[in-house]
Every structure is written in C-alpha cells, then in structure tokens.
Design a protein around this nucleic acid. Sequence first.
DNA 1: CTGAAAGCGCTTACAG
DNA 2: CTGAAAGCGCTTACAG
Lengths: 370, 370
Amino acid sequence: MTGPIREPLNFAGNCDRSPSIRDVARAAGVSYQTVSRVINEHPNVSDTTRAAVLATIAQLGFRPNRAARALAGGPAQAVTVLGSNTTLYGFAAALEGIEEATREVGFGMGFRAVEARSPADIPDVVERAIEPAGTLIVIAFDKPGALALECVPLEVPTVAMIQAPTEGAEPTRPSVWIDEFAAAKEATEYLLALGHPTVHHLPIPSWPRTTRRMEGWRAALAEAGVRMHEPLQGGWTSTWGYEAGAVLARDPNVTAVLCGNDDIALGAIAAMRDAGKRVPADVSIVGFDDIPYAQFFAPPLTTVRQDFKALGRAAFAKLLEISNSPRTLPPAAAPQARLIMRHSVAPAPQVAPSASEASGSEARSPPPGR
Amino acid sequence: MTGPIREPLNFAGNCDRSPSIRDVARAAGVSYQTVSRVINEHPNVSDTTRAAVLATIAQLGFRPNRAARALAGGPAQAVTVLGSNTTLYGFAAALEGIEEATREVGFGMGFRAVEARSPADIPDVVERAIEPAGTLIVIAFDKPGALALECVPLEVPTVAMIQAPTEGAEPTRPSVWIDEFAAAKEATEYLLALGHPTVHHLPIPSWPRTTRRMEGWRAALAEAGVRMHEPLQGGWTSTWGYEAGAVLARDPNVTAVLCGNDDIALGAIAAMRDAGKRVPADVSIVGFDDIPYAQFFAPPLTTVRQDFKALGRAAFAKLLEISNSPRTLPPAAAPQARLIMRHSVAPAPQVAPSASEASGSEARSPPPGR
DNA sequence: CTGAAAGCGCTTACAG
DNA sequence: CTGAAAGCGCTTACAG
C-alpha cells in the first residue's frame, strides 16, 4: 500500500479515526480483552481465536496506540538512547544498530543528548529522559555518557554501552562492550615484528579507567621487553590527534604509533606530513574503528575494525532481556575487533630519521587552517 | 540534584509514584484543571494562581506524563525523524540540531530509518512511524527520504528537509533547505579564475531533480562561455567518488573538479593519487559540506561549508509553527553555504599533464583495499 | 480459555 | 478567570 492512505475503514465503514481494540473485537466477534491478549502474546488464547483476531487486525489495519499502552501500565515498548554525540562514527553506527533492532520488534526509539559542554545539566537531562514504562540505553564510552549513567535510578531498565572493563572489574549495571585487548595487542606485535624499536600510543580518554586497547598495547610491549612511554591524557578528535601527533613528530625515536581511534590517526598523519615525515616510510600509523573514510585516507589506514552497529543491536537485545517486554531478539555473537591491514604501516626505517634529515624531502602542504 | 533520586515526595509524603496534576492541585489549593491550564500555557489563568501552581510544581518535582497528554488529545509534544542514514555527516548533524531544539522546548525526539536497501518496505515503515498526535521531520535529501515523504498523509504535521528546489518549483509541503547555488557558482568561478579551462562536476544524486549546486556550477560555466560536460549519475560515498574520480583521472583535460560532497572528494583525491596525479598541482578538487575530517585530508580540502545543524533547528522551528503546539522557537536566519579555502586548489598547470607524463612522479600507494 | 470492571494521567469541551 | 464531567485506548487484576 503506497501513498497517503491513513485511516482504514473500520467495521462500521466510517473512517473518522483509527480502529481500536473494540473495533477489532466487534469485527472478530470476541471481547476486547481477548484482542488485548492476542496483541500482547499472552499464552492463554486458543489457536483458532488467535488466528481470527490476527486476521481481523490485518484486515482493519489496526495498530495499538502506544500512548494508551504506556498509560495503562503495559510492558515497555520504547527505548531512549542517551549519548553525547551523533556525528562521531561509533556513536552514529551504534544508533543505527539500535534503531534496526527496535524496528524489528516494534519498539520506538528516541534520542536525547547529554552535552559535554554543560556537565552540570546532565542530571536534569537524564531525569527528563526517563518516562513511566520507559527504558534506556546509555552510550557511556565517554565522560558525559558515564556521568549520565550514574544519574539513572536503578529501577529504570537500562543497558550501558561502555569501554571494555578491566579484567575482574565487573560493571555494576547490565552492559555491553567490545573487548579490543587482543586486537590492540596484535596490532602492536605486528608493528614490533616489522622492526620498530617500540610503539607509541595516542589514546582516547580513559574514563573512568584505562582502556582495554591501552592494556593490549602495554601487554605487547611488556612481553617484548620493550621500553614503554607514558601516553598522553587522550582525546577524541582529529584536532587533538594533530596536536598530539605534532609532539610525537618532533621525537626522532617515534617510528610507530597506535592511535585510539581513526579520527586521531587522521590528525596524526596530517601532523607527520606537516612536520616533513612520510607515512608509512618514516612513521607507521595504526588506527582504531575502521570508519568508512579510513580506506581512502592518504595512505589508506591500517586499523582495528569495530562493529558498533552490532554492539548497538546487542545492547538492545540485552535490554529486552531485562525489561518486562514479551519480545525477544535472537542472541548474536559478541562483536569482535579485528585488525585490517592497509598501507599506513611499513617496516621500521633502517636509521631513525632525525627531524633535520626529513626536512629535506618533498615540499609539504602547510598546516590545515583551524 | 544529582544521583539516582527518582520519586519526589508528594503532598501526602509517600513516594509510591510520580506526582500527578491532582497532587499538584491539592498542594496548591486549586482544581486540577487549573494545573492543566498552567502547564499548557493557557492565557486564562491569573498571575498569582499561575505563580502558586508553578511553585508547587517545582517543589513536588512534577513532570507531566507524556503518554497521558497524547492519549487525551493534547498538543504535539514529540517528533519522529525519518531518514535513511545516521552515519552520513549531514544527516547526523541535522539530527543534532533537531535534538537540541526539541530539548529546549521539552519535546521528545524519535528516529526511524527508511532503508535504501528495501524501498518496498518504506510505506510500511512510514505508516508505523506515525502516531496519534505525532509529528514528523523527514530528511528527504536522498531517494529513500523522498519516497518516505510521499507516503506521509497530508494531515500529519510534517516538515521536510530537502535539496534546495529549482527556482519557481515550490515544494508541496512545509520544507527547509540550504540554497547552495551561489556558493557552488562562487567555487566554480574561483577555479576558472585560477586559469582552469573548465571545471568538472562529480555530483550527488539528483533526486527528484537537478541540485542547486549543479545549477550554480552550470551557471558559472555558462557565464564564462566555457564548454560543459555532462556529469555522471551521481553518488553519495567515497567509494563512488573513487570510481568516478578514476574515470576523470584518465582524461588529461581534467584539471579541476567540483565534488557534490566531501565524501566524494576524498574518494576522488585517492583516485587521482593512485593514478599518479598530484592534488592540487595537477588537479584541483573542491568538496561540499565541510565535514570535520576535511581540514585534515591530504591536502586539506577546500570545500563549501553547510550548516546542517542549523538546518535541523530550522526544520523543528517550522514544525512548531505548523503544529498545534503552544511552544515556539525564536526564528533563526536561513543557514547559508559558504566557500572555505584550504589547500586542495591551485592554479591550472601550464600544460595539461597527460597520464604518461604524470606517471613519472613519485611512487604512490597502491589502491585502497575494498 | 474468555469476559466485565476499574483506572492509568491527562485533555477538551462545557458550565459558571 | 475557575471548576465538575466525560473520555482518550489500552492494561492489569479479578471473575468465571
């Protein structure tokens, strides 16, 4: 059925309003409570009655009124996602995964932003996002999200999307995550095997604790018995990656950098280029996430792919489990992180190039305007 | 108030449930209808009564129940955004603008995806997204969005975010857009003034008609009396931009390319690089949108900035106007597009380089893996 | 397995 | 400017 047809004819033949369960009941010759049981998948309905009601529902184009169900105290039928950003790839992809999953089971999906700029407002935003019979998924990868999570009362059905917890540190609420320890360790070992004396790390912020990707990086260096550098504070953006990358570019001992995400990697590559260093000939760079742009970077970025869309789906599946909804989603395997090899990695240069040597190379673009 | 405090004490001192308008009325010594008038900003309430009710509302932490308001036939208080994607920058930024604006006036915001992969499902998805007392913002930049818009019955309060319409072609429904004609013309003139014999265009898809950015490009070429190339069909992604860019890279007459968005530009730059052409020395590239990554591209991308977040806000402000909500948002100026000059543009090469000449330059990365 | 009652928290008429 | 009534479309008990 295409086009602007809205109000199906009900049993009486008029179309003033959408059909209600009473209309369905009348047309099917049952009581409206029975219709309620059918649409809520209650077990105590005979197969023949159920089939008749279902047929009538289809014929009349009946759709239950969400507001009425919520008001009457029915099971959850909508989720609000709380997050600090929709333009960061990981967040946007998670949103897509949640949306797709909610659509499959007839749930509504809302979104409410907690702004990093105004942390003092977060408790209020969270409180307003909570509605009777409502549920929550909190994207708590970053500090605003983690703060929001802390404000959610325990009785609100909530699943958190979090940074993978350190071993032994169980999250206090239902949570989902991608454990990137192994992939980060593998990426670091890969760089070490290429002859790099050590690998530097440009991390995303550690909130509230160290990230598993940092632990994987540390583990690889420790096993190789290689000196380790205290990483910087961390950031999320290319702008931060550029600034941090500019610092590393001044150090001739830096030949390999594992970045906490692809945004940082892009900024770091730009900083290296502006400092007269070639990627990957002078410095190898590895990212994290595999955003759609990464394969078109110059050079195409070697990175650790993370399936945030699958993680979003997993978060919603877990929410369904802990809520009072009769709907379920088939359980999917936990999303994995895996190394994607492209062209931003090369064997270590024979002699660590000094800044003065490198400056003799081809003319470079000026720093990006900011 | 921070932390998991949920149920404020009501007048009777118990906290089994959230306070209702009856609790507020009792505490304020008025009838509950008066409380209803206050929270709906009805004019016929005396200032003293209003102040007393407002004080009680604050004291009790009363928040009106959305579901009950919707069910009772109150004004709209939520909007569902319909769009095909959340990871494309323009879409995600528009979502942010809408979310921020809805939060300011206490509206809820939902999101529902119409999938490009399954156009046959779109009418059904749209129908399910429409709820009694609900409103819609349709992101109709692309074909799935435009199809969705066509399925929305006229009586549903709806604002469309669309490609700027051709002059004289008024949109049939309330709509907002950014007119990029002037900026596209300016970008093209800028390239022409740098001595490029002509400017090629790698467009986004024209749906349902030619884009204003293409018209601006055409106008600049026509005014300059320069030969024009029939542009390709168009695409949205870097993958498409890479393929289309690879075609242009084979043509030695191509020295300047205006891309329909930054994703295309990134792909085109990669294609030029892989074909042995330097950007901007051999080929100048201009993008559209100014995504946050653009300034870190190699070279930093000259592009036309578009404020999609402001456009999202404008869409919601218009929705408030055409809906029955008493809330309003201060009208903002129409979002403009403007040229941001960086380093992907240079004067035309003295002699158009042939592919064979260019192949003698520095070694290039292999094509990105796909 | 199926039916009749009460009520969720509001709103819009309708009175005064 | 303020109050008493009816009802939005469902649900969960409670009956049988």
